[in-house]
Design a protein around this nucleic acid. Sequence first.
RNA 1: GGUCGGAUGGCCGAGUGGCUAGGCAGAGGUCUGCAAAACCUCCUACAGCGGUUCGAAUCCGCUUCCGACCUCCA
Length: 487
Amino acid sequence: MEQNLFVYNTLSRKKEQFEPLSAPHVGMYVCGPTVYSDVHLGNCRTFISFDLVFRYLTHIGYKVRYVRNVTDAGHLEGDAGDEGEDKIEKKAKLAQLEPMEIVQKYTVDFHDTMQVFNVLPPSIEPTATGHIIEQIELVKQILAAGFAYEVNGSIYFDVERYNKTHDYGILNRRNLEDLINNTRDLGGQDEKLGKLDFALWIKAKPEHLMKWPSPWSLGFPGWHLECSAMSNKYLGKQFDIHGGGIDLMPTHHTNEIAQNIASCNKIPANYWIHTNMLTVNGQKMSKSLGNSFLPQQLFTGNHSLLNKGYSPMTVRFFMLQAHYRSTLDFSNEAMEASEKGFKRLMNALALLDGLKASATSEVEVAILRQRCYDAMNDDFNSPVLIAELFEAARIVNSVKDGKLKIDAENLAILGQLMHDFVENVLGLKNEQAANNDLPKVLDMIVNLRNEAKSNKDYATSDKIRNGLQEIGFQLMDGKEGTNWSKI
RNA sequence: GGUCGGAUGGCCGAGUGGCUAGGCAGAGGUCUGCAAAACCUCCUACAGCGGUUCGAAUCCGCUUCCGACCUCCA
């Protein structure tokens, strides 16, 4: 916490010094996935971005309670507005499954995918269906405060009424008239008094499967409600950071803030962090546009836009090479560049242990370390951090080649710095197979080859090297012997 | 249509008034039996047109193009 961290706050549209409400504790809420289908790569980018935030806050000494929800009910489908079908229920009917079967399947898939990307689990991962009571209580409070009304068993939030005493556009910076004038007329919204009003509680139709009793009807909660209720429950009325994809900002987060303020007159979070979109050919990756990749397709290369597969850590590195607030465009060329860069960084990390210290040092590593912190303190600037780490890699390689001298003290700092930032902060890890007999076998083959080589039997030595290359191992002859690495 | 944001070298991508990241690709060199890796050197760009300034990729205006949101979305 000696770090002077600055965070870009969507509320102020500025970078602000990060000051938690009660350090060293930090409360962070991030809107998680709706578990009605596989997470795609764009979703993953958001959670990887917040994983970086979580990891860095933790690294600099904060005790973070990280809450990321799973939406397993109440999320309405498409153009029909609040009359639309629950996404999960729709999928369940199609697949002739219980809604909770769908939820279970895609929750497991989500967790697996997060693990593959080395995304740390949040401290608490609450579900909407697990907090129906809390949501009903919240609706009661909003009703009592006079910012909601009931029509035929459904409850709607009265946006125009709310805006008379509060600023509805505090986050999205839009005035109400503009919003009203630019809102399309949608079908099936007869019940609502105002165009911008949104549902807090929806009365279920008879055929609806997911429904719960409430004072108003047998029904289900509106989508925006769960995040208000659950952040309030686990982090309090006010907490430090609220995050999510930038596409959630104009509507979902705007409504969330309105709900919280309407119920307890406090804006829930001080810092609002929004991550930008992953694009494909310049267009947002999204399920509805049909241009999304599943992580599995990326790993295997099984997609028409892909030349080959890329490993999870390559993908993670690719994403961290762009700043979280910039759009990131996906392409094969960019992925291949990241694949090589990632390998270069990890090779340097692996060489650290074998480096020998000199009596004197030609490098001052503490300066580099400070530059790494400076990068992250500037709104989690991982691309700049990675640039600094490539400088660290250059030092490692030069020392290894005997071209640069480093003393024990600087070597220790260098090692610490690289492990801290590459593994703990960026969350990158080596993907090579470990803990088996393979290294011993390879070392033996390498020794055989070196015997042939010292006899100038290059036909044999090249045969061994080429053979290993074909099955995925690259040999590298150096002054101090031969190294191998997985290609 | 309204609101907001973006346009950086062959590709990706940082940077917000002078010091002009980084990765990948490309060229040359060192090393090496040859490779590979590594190291060194080179390629030095900011959509266009005006303006402000001693000085602009960075600030202002206009133009062109692209995107996001306005409707579920990470």
